[in-house]
């Protein structure tokens, strides 16, 4: 599948933004976060900016972005529609959270928890857009949704920890622990995901696609067209295996290994909390690379008709 820059940016940035909102909502009810007004507003504004920039970027993928509002209508059947609705609904408790912080840093638990729940629900809808697509075996599996959720929790926690570091180092250390735990879980799920896609094959083959398997091995003799068409450009994107292996290693290093090492140093008290900022930027970069690979490594059954493996 072709990795569209707009979607890679959207899922990475919005994932981190929703993750921040989740932790802000959840931890403001447990009085774990700093109470300074500037802190609450800065954190909520950065979370909102990441979410909004991502959502706007996703409309760049549309052929008719001015009609994007129509995408809110089919929530009964479409995960994309559900995602749009969940994304918009999340703005309500998120804005209430920001308003209430102006008055009191301990917002009503209902608003805070609603913001956290809707943020997570939005990320789940995003994941299910991919996980529900049967023709793409690298997406249509049980590892996709857990990874999207853990990735959002991890990048959200590390971004929030970076900001918290400037307000309250103790609270930043607590957040760093959450980030470490979710980061390790996310890395583990990603490894299991890679093992899954490497060891399974498509249930569909050129034999089942053409129904000619009863005649013997089916080979593509002649393609319908000499140049690439939409299907091959969009669904037939290919990445060389050796590059994929290297990029996986870079994704693991940047998204998880380096940031978690810094977080560990912060928790152990040997690294200054301000370094979490570097860890957060590194994690976002690594996550964008992971998201690019999520597309680049995915294959679609339509390529079977062209005699390729799905």
């Amino acid at each position: 599948m072709k990795p569209a820059g707009s979607i890679v940016f959207f899922t990475t940035a919005s994932g981190a933004g929703y993750g921040m909102l989740f932790w802000l909502g959840l931890l403001s009810t447990t009085h774990t976060l700093p109470t300074a007004l500037w802190y609450g507003l800065t954190a909520l504004i950065i979370a909102g900016a990441l979410v909004t920039a991502g959502l706007l970027s996703s409309t760049a993928h549309l052929g008719n972005p001015q009609r994007a509002w129509r995408a809110l209508s089919q929530w009964r059947s479409s995960w994309l529609s559900r995602e749009g609705i969940a994304a918009l609904l999340t703005y309500i408790p998120a804005c209430l959270l920001a308003l209430s912080w102006l008055i009191d840093p301990h917002p009503a638990p209902l608003t805070a928890l609603l913001a956290a729940a809707l943020a997570i629900a939005t990320v789940y809808c995003t994941a299910m857009i991919y996980a529900s697509l049967k023709p793409i075996r690298q997406w249509n599996n049980t590892w996709v949704a857990p990874f999207y959720l853990l990735a959002a929790l991890f990048t959200g926690a590390i971004c929030l920890a970076a900001i918290t570091g400037f307000a309250n180092p103790a609270a930043a250390a607590t957040l760093s622990e959450f980030a470490m735990l979710t980061g390790l879980a996310a890395a583990l799920v990603k490894l299991l995901y890679w093992r899954h896609i490497d060891t399974t094959t498509s249930a569909s083959t050129v034999a089942s696609a053409t129904g000619l398997g009863h005649l013997g091995t089916v080979r593509s003799f002649e393609a319908p067209h000499s140049e690439e068409n939409y299907l091959l450009k969009e669904m037939g994107f290919r990445i060389a295996r050796k590059h994929a292996a290297k990029l996986r290693a870079y994704a693991l290093l940047f998204a998880f290994a380096f940031p978690i090492a810094i977080l560990f140093g912060v928790v152990a008290g040997v690294v200054p909390v301000t370094l979490i900022l570097i860890a957060a930027l590194c994690a976002l970069l690594g996550m964008a690379l992971e998201r690019w690979l999520f597309f680049a490594e995915a294959t679609h059954t339509v390529v079977l008709f062209y005699g390729r493996q799905a």
Binding site: L62, G63, N64, A68, A71, I129, P135, E234, M235, T301
Partner: peptide, 11 residues
């Protein structure tokens, strides 16, 4: 809206 999700969903 041209989101192209349907093309991804078609096997």
């Amino acid at each position: 809206i041209g989101c192209q999700l349907c093309a991804w969903a078609c096997a």
